[in-house]
């Protein structure tokens, strides 16, 4: 996995990429299982109940059983759906979620491939999810699904802007789009969260909206739109959306960690070039837990409030932030 092995032989390089992809898929599924369990268990604890307890020790095998159930379920395709698009939508949502894993630097020597434009690559790939949601909503031929899809598009387009603007502040400082470069720029504890906490908050809020998490989970607002764009999906169709959501959360939190929390940096560990991935995952899961915590605490915002919050607060603040960063750098 190290870049030292890159000797120019194509087969070796190809093998490396394939191996990285396999690892990426393992991480994606592993993350979905861990998150599924954590979310249910934590939601239980927040609500003064034990959560899953029946399957395995403290319900630890619950997700495996759920997985078997979802795979075994009939995939019901309602009449009058656009069948091709309906089948395609969960795949379009899930497949791009694997790709960013290849460029994420988990540790100095644990990275599939370091692109010069790694950050842009991730943002581009992740944006495909909006398309998948729109396709899902449209092809279901259900008004609730369509409303959910419309909300999703409006919301994602809106929140992409403050997210990119805060990214630019970081890029101005580091001068590179390479994820490894950004992490190395923060070495020695000089994390960007200490220099630009406002950018961190804006970015985190925007990622909540981008991943359709509460309190910004309007595309699937259960009490209004039954399940939004997922209404008509069952079995594996549903579970692919489900896994995609957790994966996008993981990617969003990874980005936050890389950009603001110093990536893999932390107290030195033996074999630090590999084991410091521990710090990376610790930070990512701390953020994910925060997301879960927020979800089970707050009510959902209304749609106009959501967009107002973005256009009236986040966008101006991030613009000002960008300006201030630029001025400070110039001085």
């Amino acid at each position: 996995m190290s870049t030292v092995m890159n000797t120019g032989f194509l087969p070796l390089e190809l093998l490396r990429i394939i191996f990285a992809l396999i690892c990426a898929i393992v991480i994606v599924f592993g993350n979905a299982v861990v998150m599924g369990y954590l979310e249910r268990k934590l939601a239980g604890r927040f609500q003064r109940r034990p959560g899953p307890m029946e399957v395995g020790w403290h319900g630890i095998l619950q997700l495996a059983v759920d997985g078997v159930k979802l795979v075994g379920k009939q995939l019901i395709i309602p009449k009058q759906t656009d069948r091709v698009l309906y089948r395609l939508a969960p795949i379009i949502s899930f497949a791009p979620a694997i790709m960013p894993m290849v460029v994420i630097p988990f540790a100095p020597k644990l990275q599939g491939r370091d692109f010069d434009i790694g950050l842009i690559f991730i943002l581009a790939v992740v944006a495909i999810n909006v398309l998948a949601i729109l396709i899902a909503g449209w092809s279901s031929n259900n008004k609730y699904s369509l409303l959910g899809a419309m909300r999703s598009v409006a919301q994602n387009v809106a929140y992409e802007i403050p997210m990119l603007l805060t990214l630019l502040s970081v890029i101005l400082v580091t001068g590179t789009f390479s994820l490894r470069g950004i992490v190395e720029a923060q070495s020695g504890g000089a994390w960007f969260i200490f220099f630009m906490p406002v950018a961190f908050l804006i970015f985190f809020a925007a990622t909540l909206a981008e991943t359709n998490r509460a309190p910004f989970d309007l595309p699937e607002a259960e009490s209004e739109l039954t399940a939004g764009f997922m209404t008509e999906f069952s079995g594996m169709g549903f579970s692919l959306f489900f896994m995609a959501e957790y994966t996008y959360m993981f990617i969003a939190c990874s980005l936050t960690v890389i950009l603001f929390l110093g990536g893999w940096s932390g107290p030195p560990l033996p074999y630090g070039e590999y084991t410091s991935a521990l710090w990376f995952f610790a930070k990512v899961y701390a953020l994910l837990l925060t997301m879960i915590w927020i979800r089970w605490t707050f009510p959902r915002v209304r749609f106009d409030q959501l967009l107002n919050f973005c256009w009236k607060y986040l966008v101006p603040f991030s613009l000002v932030h960008l300006l201030v960063t630029a001025v400070v750098l110039k001085l």
């Binding site: 939601a43 927040f46 609500q47 003064r48 109940r49 509460a214 309190p215 989970d217 607002a221 259960e222 009490s223 089970w296 605490t297 707050f298 009510p299 959902r300």
Partner: peptide, 16 residues
């Protein structure tokens, strides 16, 4: 009511 507005947790507290 709070569940209708999208927060899942309070209903568990009131049920208690």
């Amino acid at each position: 009511l709070v569940l209708d507005l999208g927060a899942f947790t309070p209903i568990m507290y009131t049920f208690e």
